[in-house]
Computed example of a mutant assay.
Amino acid sequence: MNLASGKAELDSCPYVSEEARAQLAEASAPPIRPVTIGKGVRKATAGGETVMYRHEKTFYNPTLIAGMITSDTTVGDVEAKLAAWNAFQYERVGLNLRPELVALKDVNGDREAFAQLAKVIAEKSEFNLILMSADAQVIKAAVESAGFKRPLIYAATEDNVDNFGQIALDSELPLAVKADSIDGLIALTDKLTAMGVKDLVLDTGTRNLKQSLQDQVAIRRASLKDSNRSLGFPTITFPCEMTSNGDMETLVAAMFVAKYGGIVVLSDFTTESLFPLMLERLNIFTDPQRPMTVNEGIFEIGTPDEN
């Protein structure tokens, strides 16, 4: 009973057999699987949610925010952009708010250039990686150079699911799945989980604002209310591909932060868009039963003197 209600940990019982442990772990897992991207102190987790609405209990893992870099960018420009992006950190109620991800998108099929940039991002920044390409060989080259950072591979489709699934399985990396519909996603996730790939992220493929919102709600409802394990994974959304207007992109991203996006990918990071998104995310993913507080004390502000 305590295990089912989340009041006890399975590891606290030393008498459970390995077979029973696996079955109980599967049965007691969150309806939306938590998927970790990255390693070390900057690793980030999407998913793991258990309720439709924040006031029912709480949301656990804040929406991850990514900025896009294309593979035709020079190494020097990438390094400069990473340095600028790393400065986007904001202090709020004692917390450090910052974006977590860089999405590296293959635009020319040059596997060497793609792998080189992936290595630069992995080694010279604290950002975690999303590797985006439809070419399995390009992804494989990038995994060889930056796999130590545990990037998210994007994306397995109906055409390449076997190759991408094998890469994710061999490298033990999370894998995004893209289809033209929710039914298409179910077929792909069932196939990948049967292969042994467990850490999946869902993309319904649509870049229409209304349809994308409907898909986010439908996936969350199916996984929580209908216990549909085939859809029990976090989602990835692309406001950067839904509009060419920066202000509208920020508004679309804000919608996905509020409505179930596990990862939101932006075309760029700018203070005027990132700071409001960080604050929105902070407020939505704060436990409503535990108000935000700061440490009590007397703090020096400025340079006070005897006057």
Rank of each mutant, 00 (worst) to 15 (best):
D11C: 07
D11F: 04
D11T: 10
C13L: 12
P14V: 05
P14G: 05
P14K: 03
P14R: 06
P14Y: 03
P14E: 08
P14N: 06
P14H: 05
Y15E: 14
Y15N: 12
V16T: 04
S17M: 05
S17G: 08
S17L: 07
S17Q: 10
S17W: 03
S17T: 14
E19F: 11
E19P: 00
E19N: 10
E19I: 07
A20F: 10
R21V: 04
R21L: 06
R21C: 05
R21N: 06
A22P: 01
A22W: 04
Q23K: 13
Q23S: 11
A25N: 11
E26P: 01
A27Q: 14
A27K: 12
A27C: 06
S28H: 06
S28N: 09
S28R: 03
A29Q: 13
P30S: 13
P30M: 05
P30F: 02
P30W: 01
P30V: 05
P31I: 01
I32N: 01
R33D: 04
R33A: 10
P34D: 10
P34S: 10
P34K: 07
P34T: 10
V35Y: 00
V35C: 02
T36D: 03
T36H: 00
I37A: 02
G38C: 07
G38Q: 00
G38Y: 00
K39E: 10
G40F: 04
G40K: 08
V41W: 07
V41L: 13
V41S: 15
R42L: 03
K43N: 12
K43G: 08
K43M: 14
A44D: 05
A44M: 09
A44F: 01
T45A: 10
T45P: 03
T45M: 09
A46H: 01
A46T: 04
A46G: 05
G47H: 00
G48F: 02
G48W: 02
G48L: 09
E49Y: 07
T50P: 04
V51D: 02
V51P: 01
V51L: 06
M52S: 10
Y53H: 14
Y53W: 15
Y53D: 15
H55E: 15
H55M: 15
H55D: 15
E56C: 12
E56W: 11
K57I: 05
K57S: 08
